[in-house]
Design a protein around this nucleic acid. Sequence first.
DNA 1: ACTTTCCTTTGGTAGTTACCAACTATTGGT
DNA 2: ACCAATAGTTGGTAACTACCAAAGGAAAGT
Lengths: 149, 149
Amino acid sequence: MSFADKPRALTDLTTYLLSQTAKLAKRDLDQRLSERGLRLRHMAVLAAVAEGPASQLDLARRLDMDPSDMTATVDDLEGSRLVSRTVDSSDRRRKLVTLTRPGRTELRRLDALAREVAGALLAPVPAARRQQLHDDLYRVLVAHDHRDG
Amino acid sequence: MSFADKPRALTDLTTYLLSQTAKLAKRDLDQRLSERGLRLRHMAVLAAVAEGPASQLDLARRLDMDPSDMTATVDDLEGSRLVSRTVDSSDRRRKLVTLTRPGRTELRRLDALAREVAGALLAPVPAARRQQLHDDLYRVLVAHDHRDG
DNA sequence: ACTTTCCTTTGGTAGTTACCAACTATTGGT
DNA sequence: ACCAATAGTTGGTAACTACCAAAGGAAAGT
């Protein structure tokens, strides 16, 4: 059961450590989010629209989601009044998704919650290196993005 | 599309970066493994039995898998002759899973493949910090294990 | 001997994720 | 006016993950 007796052939692989750590992080965060009836994708959309209203396709592209999944996610958020949908008057095909006041409040709550989870998870890493860890992951993602879009 | 225009509210969260990075790593690795008709769990089992024969329940516990899923995984591996099953003579309920010679060869191949994927993914991180990244993740997992493992 | 526990196997299930096709309404180009 | 492309929606699907229950054979405890 203890992580220490997992096969070296696995624990020597950074990819394996990454996937295991991410699994823990996701599990912890999902559990906290589900207390509020939400999932990570809901939080992602709230975070995106916090930067300003956007069309659903815009959001889908920015968050790497399928447009149809975006519809469902926005349905949920609209259902609990965290965002509102309004037809874009300059292009009536588009629906602008806007963060409501309760939505902003909720996002703040979710953000605090996520930081709490991250803090607990990364507690064993010295503070200085936690920032480095963050930067390194960011670097990896940016670089990967430049490769294939 | 570019990672850089993802919402700051997300990219500031280390948990989000972790999950995104892990998703990439998993996708890349899975794709390479599927060329060989295998998945991560198969590699995990091969890696575990490389340290010596073990019963299926043992393996399931060490790899955090359900025993029934272990049965299916060992079925696959046995089907392609990468492991063999033998009844434990000292406890005939148990079936000892043993790495075959082709299994050992395959594991070496998979290991090289995984390192290749990790190398490509983590290329943007300076070598010295790559080791730190590895150590920090390891630390997180060990600590988490002591909590509730 | 009897009961309980253990190991494996079979055959499920629920919930995700990540898609895709098709349809409607709308727009922009010509 | 017509056509191609775009935005959103609906209603799927396939593949996986992570379970769970039950049952048969074997072992251990009393």
